[in-house]
């Protein structure tokens, strides 16, 4: 390897490498290669679960959502045409699965989760900080869907506005608008 002035080149190369592997797996899975799809699921399960946890706020729901997402990926991967990045596609499916789960909950009138202040998942050490942070999380999760998605994608997942826009299938400016609206809604809390 030449360690010439191309500093950024080597950094970009490692990232590109991971992407290239995912890309190759996606192509193989789309062609019906079960092994590749299994690898792909293993590679992505952790991230799907973590995302679902942030949106739902508890492990049980997050596990349900992650499983739904795995099933949907299995059904739809053959039709994934690669127009958007695989990761944003997975995000979109995850957010949709969260929404479905929560809508079906609402229909059955179960609001238990929203009222829980401190979940047993939390470490007991920093209870106080956790309490304020929990309040913030609870408030964010109660936001209207679009605002919640925008805020969590930008702040919890630390994506750019452009990336969030791609996932939510809206314009970049609209993401900023939703974040702005969310701030207004949360003003009392922040």
């Amino acid at each position: 390897m030449v360690h010439a002035p191309a500093m950024d080149g080597t950094a970009a190369e490692t990232i590109d490498h991971a992407q290239a592997i995912t890309q190759a797996l996606v192509v193989r899975a789309r062609n019906g290669d079960g092994q590749a799809f299994a690898l792909l699921l293993e590679q992505h399960y952790e991230r799907i679960y973590r995302t679902a946890w942030k949106w739902c706020g508890n492990g049980d729901d997050a596990e349900d959502v992650a499983q739904d997402v795995c099933i949907k990926l299995g059904q739809a991967i053959a039709g994934f045409d690669g127009r958007s990045a695989f990761s944003s596609w997975v995000y979109r499916i995850t957010l949709n699965a969260v929404r479905d789960l929560q809508r079906s909950r609402q229909r059955r009138g179960r609001h238990v989760d929203a009222l829980r202040q401190i979940t047993p998942d939390e470490h007991p050490a920093d209870q106080e900080e956790a309490a304020t942070s929990k309040q913030l999380w609870a408030a964010v999760r109660r936001l209207p869907e679009k605002q919640r998605d925008a805020v969590l994608l930008v702040y919890a997942e630390e994506l750019s506005h452009a990336a969030a826009a791609e996932i939510m299938n809206i314009k970049e400016a609209t993401v900023s608008f939703h974040v702005h609206e969310a701030r207004k809604t949360l003003r009392g809390l922040l």
Partner: peptide, 13 residues
């Protein structure tokens, strides 16, 4: 979850 995903994949294939 992984098993369910695989099952769905094979099913749709």
């Amino acid at each position: 979850a992984l098993a369910a995903g695989m099952a769905a994949f094979e099913n749709s294939a």
